[in-house]
Design a protein around this nucleic acid. Structure first.
Lengths: 106, 106
DNA sequence: CAGTATCCATATGGATACTG
DNA sequence: CAGTATCCATATGGATACTG
């Protein structure tokens, strides 16, 4: 259910508060509309996110966590904290992967 | 780093103890050799798992967690616990996905 | 603002047969 | 026992243009 490049981040931001589509987009950053919508729809059909269309013009849509989604996001926190604490190691891994893409040589 | 269908499970089992290739294979179950090896290699090159080839005949290879890997596995625990506690909801989601594959209709 | 539509590359995982 | 090799289908994400 959290498989998807941006899903943990989406859950994290929804747990913090901002919940309009545009806010999420700005929060996650460098994610295309297509992928963000796609992942939100999956989260919605998985029952962790609730989508509320206010049917206004201009459009206003809220995304909020369901109780299940909230508990999932909370279970995800230690992993996020780990990511922050081990940012150096994680960054090294990501850098290595980039280097490998440029010129594989071992 | 934990993206990969079986990686969380692999880390979980390595945290519990069993560490020979065959033991992991039996533990994870229904994973093919190719995928298991592939994911173990990725975990190894990411610095979370250490591979020790005892160079014996018959072959004996140990996989153990590095300190980084151990901390990662521990950060993953709440998520595993969440999965167990919400097994019903998770199972429903998985069942729905199966049904959708068989005959998409909404 | 909050999306949809289309096309595309790559990543990911699976099946099967084989091996020192 | 602990892998390797090959072939293949699908999932996943990205780029770009468009819209009520």
């Amino acid at each position: 259910m959290i498989a998807g490049k941006w899903k943990p981040l989406i859950l994290y931001f929804l747990l913090q508060g901002p919940n309009r589509y545009g806010a999420l987009k700005r929060a996650v950053r460098c994610v295309s509309d297509k992928v963000l919508i796609q992942q939100l729809k999956e989260l919605e059909s998985d029952g962790v996110v609730l989508r509320t269309d206010h049917k206004e013009v201009p459009p206003r849509v809220d995304y909020t966590l369901t109780p299940l989604g909230r508990s999932l996001a909370e279970a995800l926190e230690p992993l996020c904290i780990w990511g922050v604490e081990n940012m150096d190691a994680v960054a090294r891994v990501l850098a290595d992967r980039e280097a490998w893409k440029q010129g594989p040589s071992g």
